[in-house]
Nucleic acid binder design. Sequence first.
DNA 1: CACTATTTGTCCGTATGTATG
DNA 2: TCATACATACGGACAAATAGT
Lengths: 289, 289
Amino acid sequence: MPTARDTTAKSDSAALDADPDAAAAHFWEMRLSPDMLDEGQPTPLYHQIYMVMRSVIEQNEVGPGTLLPGEQTLTRLFAVSRITVKRALNELAADKLVSRHRGRGTIVAPRSSIPMVRSSFDNLIESLQEMGLVTQIELLEVGEVSAGDSAAGSLLKLPANALLHRVVRRRLLEGQPLAYLITFTPKDIAASFSVEDVAHKTFLALLERAGAAPHEAEQWITAVAAEPQMAAALDVSVSAPLLKIERIMRDASGRPVQLSLGYYRPDRFQYHVRNVTLREQRGAALAAE
Amino acid sequence: MPTARDTTAKSDSAALDADPDAAAAHFWEMRLSPDMLDEGQPTPLYHQIYMVMRSVIEQNEVGPGTLLPGEQTLTRLFAVSRITVKRALNELAADKLVSRHRGRGTIVAPRSSIPMVRSSFDNLIESLQEMGLVTQIELLEVGEVSAGDSAAGSLLKLPANALLHRVVRRRLLEGQPLAYLITFTPKDIAASFSVEDVAHKTFLALLERAGAAPHEAEQWITAVAAEPQMAAALDVSVSAPLLKIERIMRDASGRPVQLSLGYYRPDRFQYHVRNVTLREQRGAALAAE
DNA sequence: CACTATTTGTCCGTATGTATG
DNA sequence: TCATACATACGGACAAATAGT
């Protein structure tokens, strides 16, 4: 992780320890290469380079203030023309990820520093406050849909002519968009929910009041590209990656009482699993093989 | 799901039930629209259309034998020129997802039916076989990196001059790309790993042999956009959403013994969590509020 | 202060790819 | 299929700003 003027920078090579600039150069030589790009892809080269550089910055491989290699150097490292490199760097600048100045170079911009939520579902009682208090809810839509018109109907195991209570909300973290949440509840359970209720009370409380207290839950976690609607609500670009958490909650009798679809900004929310025990962890290890 | 000559086709509208062709037309009218394309994106329009149609086919929204709308119709639905639609359909044909015949139209090809893996880490001993036997591993890279040159070093809590054993692999499911896996192991633990070992044995076995049997694991799950390299390996386009699972494994003494970064195709892998108990589930419910 | 090396900005001409009608 | 327009990518050239000598 080379920093612009960091005389304490270390490296594996003793020769590089003395010279921080050489250490930084070594870092980029190792990190960037022409085979990170693919001519066969329909995506333009400048955007592929943009993706690589953005990843380096967002994954904190280089810190704010770091001087990126010059256009000439990147031209050599990626084996493309200078115009192509320039365009990639300009896209980074347009996204405020770097700042560019003639004669000075391209410098990694300071972090926006919006805190990240790490939701762990094995000890969430503690992070409950972090999650519940620092974040706000915005009610976007309330309405009804036919079970037959929505994939939610079959997941909740309802006949096609049944009605579903549908709520769309947005969760904010420190005033910044965090998640886009769609909740489906069977009409008979949601009959007593008023708009006021939905806007101000938790669904957990409402479900308990309706005599449909959740007893178990099942979740599927995956990644999706942001569709225009949620992209606008979450202030990301269309097709940006989002973490999707689909959850079905059932009551003590096993009847599905709620389906929720949550779309989370990955830069502000991570799903955390810890203390995987040995038995599970053997599975986890195998899955990573 | 309209099928070419399926008189039993159903729809939410009674009027459409009588005419299967009208029902199919209605399906496509609802499913496709110009909003699904983004002129502002660097990805060419023909490829965006290709992605949309491929998704429709691979998600089983239409079955094999289904007649796709003609080029004229797609030209209208997507609001692009006929040549652009033609190119998208030709790419689908090149991928053997459809067959095209003059005068007949474009027909969805029989399924290769790539199953989806649902990795649940609470009962993985059973799906262990599913995961271990049905999938294959390809070794892409083996090498060493300096801890200081990689973010992995600090995560494994190693000094900057320490060495890391780095392995890049690809996991295939039924011959199709499933995951791109990068594994970092401290050099002292990995000293006994040969290339043969890495290519044919599980890391779990190798770690146990090296006296660094994993005892606990911690995971972070998030979504990222595919970089060019992993996009090529996973056969997705650059910037496609991928599920990222970062995992640190520690031995009984708490020392980190391995860091693995897994990038999974969301259409072939989902992280599944079930049987969330009441205490956890109250937290889960709140997080979704 | 000038001089120089470095770095980004701008412009040209050309070839190919993308998209329209 | 053709003609047209714009985007992408290349190589090259020169100008303008910056930092160090």
